[in-house]
Computed example of a mutant assay.
Amino acid sequence: MTKKLVAEALGTAILVLFGCGAAVIGGAEIGFTGIALAFGLAIVAAAYSLGAISGAHLNPAVSLGMVTAGRMTVAEFAGYAVAQVAGAIIGALVLYLIVSGKPGFVMGEWALGSNGYGPGYLGEYSLAAALVFEAVMTFLFVTVILGATGAGSAAGFAGLAIGLTLTAIHLVGIHVTGVSVNPARSIGPALFAGGAALSQLWVFIVAPLAGGALAGLVYKAGLTRA
């Protein structure tokens, strides 16, 4: 179990550092498409390097979906979630240490790639839009993960399918919430950014967990598997 938790922490740190790092450091040059690819490629890298150890969930919503699908215990979920949040905080810390070294750096209201919504945040979408987007997209994301890693799936392609799905979700929704679909990914940057990022954090915990849990229930019912 220790190896699994270390793998989850390391993988989630990679996701935050690569994905949020692309947004913060190279966002102006690579645009939304580049940021979306960075998140997707981070998942692919983690899946193929760490997946054999822990399954490379890297996301409490994914782990909760595994619980409701009957593929993980609640105790295992708790350990995974703690490791994932710890990894996200480490990833955000490393990112902060890098970007704070740039002359003139100022910690903005939604710094370090924090998720958000409403006035002042990207497309300024409403709270309702943010909740719907995060819940629905997490449901779809976890549905793909459960299918790609379940019995009868094509061997060796799960990481690619999952990474491409996360890329597509970012292409659709960066302007809406910055895309979370992952409570840990949101917690790490928000703890450093504070302010609005921290006060709005509940959205990016509640909605993804609800979407992930529902995906697991639907999968367990046999509605999204052979």
Rank of each mutant, 00 (worst) to 15 (best):
88 A>H: 11
35 I>L: 07
49 S>W: 07
226 A>F: 12
109 E>S: 14
36 A>R: 10
19 G>L: 07
44 V>S: 04
196 A>Y: 11
147 G>A: 03
68 T>C: 01
112 L>H: 03
130 A>V: 08
89 I>A: 13
25 I>N: 10
110 W>K: 05
91 G>W: 13
192 F>E: 06
159 G>N: 04
182 N>G: 08
193 A>L: 06
17 L>K: 09
186 S>A: 15
15 L>G: 03
13 A>E: 10
223 L>Q: 11
46 A>V: 15
162 I>F: 01
33 T>Q: 09
67 V>P: 01
130 A>K: 02
75 A>D: 08
76 E>K: 14
60 P>Q: 05
25 I>R: 12
225 R>C: 04
5 L>Q: 08
83 A>G: 12
96 Y>W: 15
47 A>L: 06
69 A>S: 04
142 V>L: 03
129 A>I: 10
73 T>N: 02
69 A>I: 00
182 N>P: 02
137 M>I: 14
34 G>M: 13
11 G>A: 13
146 L>H: 00
200 Q>A: 13
167 T>K: 07
46 A>Y: 06
201 L>N: 02
88 A>W: 09
68 T>A: 00
225 R>H: 10
30 I>Y: 05
214 L>T: 13
12 T>I: 12
113 G>A: 06
131 L>R: 04
184 A>M: 11
75 A>L: 15
89 I>N: 06
209 L>K: 01
15 L>Q: 05
88 A>D: 10
152 G>K: 03
151 A>Q: 14
180 S>L: 09
193 A>T: 04
17 L>T: 09
110 W>S: 10
193 A>D: 02
58 L>R: 07
159 G>I: 05
30 I>T: 07
92 A>Y: 10
30 I>H: 09
37 L>Q: 07
20 C>L: 09
41 L>I: 15
183 P>C: 05
10 L>I: 15
83 A>M: 12
7 A>H: 05
64 L>Y: 00
101 G>L: 13
137 M>S: 11
39 F>I: 08
103 P>M: 12
85 V>D: 09
88 A>E: 12
204 F>T: 07
99 V>F: 11
78 A>H: 09
19 G>I: 11
164 L>Y: 06
169 I>K: 02
156 G>H: 01
44 V>W: 09
123 G>C: 07
204 F>C: 04
145 I>E: 02
102 K>H: 14
206 V>T: 02
11 G>Q: 12
133 F>K: 01
43 I>R: 05
182 N>A: 10
